[in-house]
């Protein structure tokens, strides 16, 4: 067992547990979009960043709680001012690429993100990789993966072609934190499932009518502001 302190509370967890799971065990809620208990931790959305180290003995570091293994005597803070500031910026970035997702809008409301200062580019995907891991780890299919890198990165099938190993199970849709439409059935023309246009149901081809009819708009009204 490993002993650690989360927000000053002492807890003991089995070796190899992640900080996120240890915190959840204590009932401390850490926001996350790319973590799923049934899949390997990935550390892509960075919303679960926590502050580790002791302020009295030196500078602290921000690490993602989902991938950071517990260490003996580790001191963790989950909601410091520094973290809130960082998370607000991350949520603003998420909103600027995925403005219509309910999950992200809810997070924005929770963290009082009231405006998006970046030009909005509706990509309907936050590249959290849940679908890719679901397909590989639970469905044993590896039908989808990441292609390209940097700002060109996207989720797709090999060579953007209809995948021969995809069983149209819809597992990718099921775990997607930003996709809220269901699969249209196996007769749909798209390579994986239907035509819901979410990037997990590949490919969200240009030119096809969008399911939500949302277009890029630099003055996105977030839930927080609308609530006032």
């Amino acid at each position: 067992m490993t002993r650690l302190f989360i927000n000053g509370m002492e807890t003991e967890v089995p070796e190899g547990t992640s900080v996120l799971e240890a915190a959840q065990g204590l009932g401390v809620e850490i926001p996350t979009l790319c973590f799923h208990p049934g899949l390997s931790a990935y550390g892509a959305c960075r919303l679960c960043v926590v502050e580790i180290g002791d302020l009295r003995s030196g500078p602290t570091r921000l690490v993602s709680a989902c991938t950071y293994p517990v260490q003996e005597g580790l001191r963790v803070r989950t909601h410091s001012a520094r973290l809130e500031r960082a998370r607000r910026m991350l949520i603003e970035l998420l909103l600027s690429i995925c403005p219509s997702s309910k999950r992200i809008q809810d997070l924005a409301a929770e963290y009082q993100v009231e405006r998006v200062r970046f030009p909005v580019r509706d990509e309907r995907c936050i590249l959290c990789g849940l679908c890719v891991r679901m397909c590989a780890e639970q469905m044993m299919a590896r039908a989808i993966g990441f292609a390209h890198r940097g700002y060109r990165r996207k989720v797709t099938t090999p060579f953007d072609l209809r995948s021969e190993v995809c069983r149209l199970c819809g597992g990718c849709l099921y775990v997607c934190p930003v996709c809220e439409l269901r699969c249209q059935g196996p007769e749909a023309p798209d390579p994986v499932c239907g035509s819901c246009q979410a990037p997990t149901c590949l490919p969200a081809r240009e030119g096809l009518p969008g399911a939500w009819g949302v277009t890029g708009n630099s003055s996105v009204q977030t839930k927080a502001r609308r609530g006032r």
Binding site: C45, S96, I97, G150, R153
Partner: peptide
């Protein structure tokens, strides 16, 4: 950097892209 970032994590992928913009 926005080109060479692997694109795995949000702040690096989207952050460098937005800084470039």
């Amino acid at each position: 950097l926005r080109d060479e970032s692997c694109g795995k994590c949000l702040p690096c992928r989207e952050g460098t892209n937005r800084m470039y913009e």
